[in-house]
Design a protein around this nucleic acid. Sequence first.
RNA 1: GCCGGCGUAGCUCAGUGGUAGAGCAACGGUUUCGUAAACCGUAGGUCGGUGGUUCAAUCCCACUCGCCGGCUCCA
Length: 657
Amino acid sequence: MTAATEPEHARGETIEISLPGTGTKTFQAGVTAREALTAMTGTLPPDVFAVTIDAIPGDLNTPLTQHATVEPLTFASEAGKEVYRHSSAHILAQAVKEVFPSANLTIGPPIDEGFYYDFAFERPFTPEDLATIEARAQEIIQKNYPVQRLEMSKEDAIKLFQDKGEAFKVEIIQQIEDATVSLYQQGTFIDLCRGPHVHSTGQVRAFKVLHGAGAYWRGDERKPMLQRVYGTSFPTQKGLDAHLHKLEEMKRRDHRKLGKELDLFSIQDETGPGLILWHPRGARVRLLIENFWREAHVKHGYELIYSPHVARYELWKTSGHADYYRDNMFAPIAVDSGEYQLKPMNCPFHIMVYKSHLRSYRELPVRYGELGTVYRYERSGVLHGLMRVRGFTQDDAHIFCRPDQIESEVHKVLEFTMFVLRHFGFTEFELYLSTRPEQAVGAQDKWDQATRALEAALERGGFPYRLDPGEGVFYGPKIDLKIRDALGRAWQCSTVQIDFNNPERFALSYIGDDGAAHQPIMIHRALLGSIERFFGILVEHYAGAFPVWLAPVQAVVLPITDRQADYAVHVRDQLAGAGLRVDLDLRNEKVGLKIREAEKAKVPYMLVVGDREREAQGVSVRKRSGAKVGAMPVTEARDLILHDMPSEVLTSPSLSR
RNA sequence: GCCGGCGUAGCUCAGUGGUAGAGCAACGGUUUCGUAAACCGUAGGUCGGUGGUUCAAUCCCACUCGCCGGCUCCA
């Protein structure tokens, strides 16, 4: 065993270490990153727990053996968070081993907002176990064990873990290709780990065990079930509290809970799992979404079409779905002498419309859009509210164009996508360009050409994007777009995919200016993805308080006593006549109760009418924020509500009752 | 599908091997009220389903359906 901190370089050699913003200094080779930083800046701030050496994260104790740029690493950076959470996972693992010595170690990586560690253990951890584990982890932090890196040969490491009875660790080491492996030790706890790690366990400040769950070894359901423990950690209690608060907020906004409370939709056992029943209020929001969607598509050069829910099984053979998508399809239906398939996708139908007559290069691009409802078999365990269902409506479109039109078409789609998403109140976007995967159809030069066109479209729009190499679909490269919601969560809704496969399978063509037949390029795209899922995202984004233009009920008229009933009806009719969605609460209840219920129903405007308002032919306006706007004429209240909507909506087909 | 948890009134939930309760909602009545819950009363459940153990099952067991948390993050 060789301690990595022992200098392995020639003595007396000097190296230059740069610290951006401070300067460069000469050191003896072998100086640790920590020593170099301290020499250059005085004392090291307590929040520095690791470094980057030429931008690669490393331990504070890493010996520096050549010229390098060294920077302190803190929780502020993504790389820092990963190190911090990874060390937190080790603390968790140490705690579990101390409390339950028979548990075996497997892996414990950092994840988006925390970390987990998987253990092989004879039973699931109970909430009491988790509390014990957390208490022990806190002790480990208190004891502030130094975290030390060790290096040893694979053979030695295998022997070490064999002696400890850690079979999973042995399996992992056997798959490592390097001759030596690194381990990290804190107290008596040793784990195989690439690192880097914090300098001592006390550098992890606010630590929390969250929950346990089952997870397969290497994510493979044929492999043993492990016990996963999730946790998170932050440098400050405040940070942890904010995170826990966010988790509470996610629960509060859960679209399944709000969907029930606001009577938007239901999923019932008798109907079947993953199948949505849209209640009137939810359906009203959906209709508004769809009206906007259709109108926007027509304005942006799309033709709207409709297609059936089933088709001959042969169609799905031609498209290839019968082979590569079979596991996600419902079983075929026997009809007469043949078989029909419930559609999992809309594309074959759009292709058939394209193929219905001969196409000239002059009419391209052809853009077909449809709110097409598809059915896919999803495994029962993955269904989730509106987010993952078995029947949903795609806001689908297919663009058939010439190869030279790809760039401009994709550019238009991207601009259109952002227009639509902004309309729903999303302002933060992340774009990803996915390139050719290992298994793919279509010639390399086609892929290159299409990928370049996608890049050019992204650059023309000035959209920052990230590359996802090899993550394209087998039939072509794609651009995915994610939105961030009010809680900062990313959701992928929009996708733009080039398809080389279907034009070939369906032998699509158009007649070019040379009089010969050519194969068009097909672009699949969805903006909202699934209407069901997008609606669920909207519910969570707005916590059920839809913007006025989408609110199922925009205003409710609340008479104080039944003396004002006739006047209240008059007010309601006047507003409804202006295209607003207005309810009237004529119940024999006190106005406080009516307001409470309107607040709970998240109605944006409450219009109180008493004797005073009746005399003045007005209403007293209260917003759902609790703000009292005050008394005003009915016409003024009407304009106030109308001006609370995007101007495009005012010209759209209204949905007044 | 797999692992774990859960399934009691429309909703949120309590409860016990001796055939069940609360609050809200519903319904009836009283009250006519000024910006987040007036008061009184009535009714409501083969305790998810099927089978088993037991003198007796909502409770224990098996199966089944559904829901919830996970099962992608790779030392």
